[in-house]
Amino acid sequence: MRVELSVNGDLYRRESEPDLTLLALLRDVLELTGTKWGCLTGDCGACTVLVDGEPIVSCLQLARQVEGREVTTVEGLAGNGALDSLQAAFVSNGAAQCGFCTPGMIVSAEALLRARPSPSEAEIREALSGNLCRCTGYNKIIDAVLEAAGSRGAAA
């Protein structure tokens, strides 16, 4: 079965198994390995990507079901190799330990900031509640999102 997907602004046409997940397509076919292969049951959020700007877990998403829609992965956030303000805030706040959850955290936080540019801490915790950090470094992650919201607000 042929699948046609728009990922980070590029259109890809590939032959794929009919029940291929978006996660498998992104990582194994398109070699976009920023999106992580975690629990495969939708619980950990490491595979979070945006579809038309909304966060979903790509491990439970059939690739075929997102044809005609815009997929954004963590690779799509950095412009010309430069980190965006949210990614930079993760670096400056030490919001990554082992780093495995980081792409999913950043993509979920990006979705939040697009919808609510000045979220409260409670709103950030709610938005990230589907992303698990096994190193339990949540406080610095929340600090990073708060800082990114502040810097984007100042730039706007």
Partner: peptide, 9 residues
């Protein structure tokens, strides 16, 4: 129900 991601799907 679930998480933001699950509710979106």
């Amino acid at each position: 129900l679930g998480s933001v991601q699950i509710r979106t799907m």
